[in-house]
Structures are given as C-alpha cells and as structure tokens.
C-alpha cells in the first residue's frame, strides 16, 4: 500500500493556477465572474483553514461537552440553511424550529447509535470520529428537508383550491393532504436515492476517495463509505418524514382547515 503523501503549501499554490486561468478567461470574455471567483476562492481557503485549526484544537482538548457544543452549533447553522432555502416559510419560530428540530433529532439519533454500536471509537464521542460523521449526515438531511419543505409549502399554496374542495366534500386533513405530503416526501428522498444509485459508477464519493488517497485499502474505504451511506439514508429519511409531517400539521388545524395564513 502506498504511503500518505503530504502536500506542501507550494503544491496548493500551484493548484490555484487553474482558478487564475479561469479568472483570466472570465475577464477576456467579460463574464463578470472574475471578482466573484476570486472572493469565493479566498473565502473557501479561509473557512477551511479555520476549520482545520478548530478541529485540531477540539481533537486536542477532547472534551465531551465541547464536542456536543460544536455539534449543536453545526446543527443550528444547518437549520438556518434549511430555513433560508425555502421560498415560502412558516411564520414565526416554526419556520426555523421544525426543520432544525427534525434534522437534529434524526442526526443525533443515528450518529449516537452508529458511534455506540458500529464504529465504537474510544471514547464513543471521540470528536475525530463523531464530528466529521455528524457533518456528513447533517449536510444530507439538510438538503432532504429543505427540498421536502419547499415542495410541501409551494404545492399547498398552489393546490389550495383542490385541497379545500376535498375538505368541503367531507375529507379530513389527513386524507386531503396525503397526496401532497407524499409528493413532498418523494422530493426530499430524491437526492439521497439518486446519490446511492450513482455511487461507485458515476461518482466516487469524496470521503472514500480521501481515505484511498491517504493510503487506506480500497475495500476498507468502501466499507466505511457503505456505512456512511446507510447512516445518511436512514437519517435523511427520518428527518424528512418528521419535518414534512410536522409542517403539514402546522399548515392545517384540528378543525380540518388549510392554514396558509401561517405561511409568510
């Protein structure tokens, strides 16, 4: 097995030549992207560098409390992202809390079970294992939930007349909303289903490639990748289902009314 090859800062500088080339092309073709490209490149480098130092510090301190705080902060940021990605949001605290709450519930449940029973690092919350895994799981639940919720609210607004026609004929809210909830769940599940279907044929996932690059046996790397995908799939499903159901309940009430007044 080949050894891990350490990168020098010079190597990174060399790799940025292609970005500079893109910038030059943008200027030549007047695409107006050069400045943006420059800013996001710098931003990416700064963000990742901060993460590197933070992770190094967190691994060194290795405290369960600190690990939990970091995980919560990650969750809160991802929750904000779910909120921001929706065209029409639930008014008030609900707009944030249903998405973020469902995501954290699913994420924490799956990661804790995985750490305790399958990966079993010592101690089980070891930030070197828990935080990167949590990040990967969180990112995927986030995408699923934001797609599902965006689909649900937009469809309910668009299909208001059809839903109310069902209610007027004596259907209760579960019956009237079911097809639209199903549609939203399908939208939320789609990315992870597509990702799993393409896995290994069209795309080699980043984590697996990373492990292979760092000299780990491909079979071991694939085993890890399968584990991650199973966790991501499970957590995304739980998060999407819970967020969609809670949002559908919030957008209707116990008198079987459609409550679009709760959308802002």
């Amino acid at each position: 097995m080949a050894e891990y090859i350490e990168l020098s800062y010079w190597d990174l500088a060399l790799a940025s030549i292609f970005i500079l080339l893109n910038g030059a092309l943008s200027i030549a073709f007047r695409l107006g992207l050069a400045k943006k490209l420059f800013i996001v490149t710098i931003r990416m480098i700064v963000q990742l560098s901060i993460v590197a130092f933070l992770l190094k510090a967190i691994f060194a301190i290795s405290s369960p409390f600190l690990t939990l705080i970091v995980a919560l902060i990650m969750g809160l940021f991802a929750g904000r992202e779910i909120w921001a990605r929706q065209n029409k949001k639930l008014a008030g605290i609900w707009g944030y809390s249903i998405g973020a709450g469902s995501m954290m519930f699913a994420g924490f449940l799956v990661i804790i079970i995985a750490l305790k029973t399958q990966i079993q690092p010592d101690p089980w919350w070891n930030p070197q294992f828990s935080l990167p895994l949590f990040g990967m799981i969180l990112g995927n639940i986030m995408t699923g939930i934001s797609l599902a919720l965006d689909n649900l609210t937009t469809t309910l607004i668009r299909e208001k007349r059809a839903i109310e026609a069902l209610l007027l004929l004596g259907k209760n809210r579960q019956q009237a909303l079911l097809p639209f909830v199903q549609g939203a769940l399908r939208a939320g599940f789609m990315p992870i289903i597509n990702a799993m279907a393409a896995m290994g044929i069209i795309s080699l996932p980043g984590m697996m490639s990373g492990q292979i690059l760092s000299g780990i046996d491909p079979v071991e790397a694939v085993k890890y990748q399968i584990l991650i995908l199973l966790l991501i799939g499970g957590a995304t499903g739980l998060g999407v289902i819970s967020a969609t159901i809670f949002t559908a309940l919030r957008l209707s009430d116990e008198r079987d009314r459609l409550r679009l007044d709760r959308v802002k």
Partner: peptide, 29 residues
Amino acid sequence: MKANKWRKLVALVPAETGWWSEKVGDHFF
C-alpha cells in the same frame, strides 16, 4: 361536531371549485 362531518351536512359550492386529479371521474366518490 367534527369539521368534516359538519361539511357533509353543510355543503359549500364555491364559484370556482378545485380539481385534484386529471380525470373527472376521480372527483366523485
């Protein structure tokens, strides 16, 4: 009463009704 029972007793026909399926027959139970 439950709201859905009430709406079976008191039927509202709006000026423009809604349609949730492509086929007309699907809207009649």
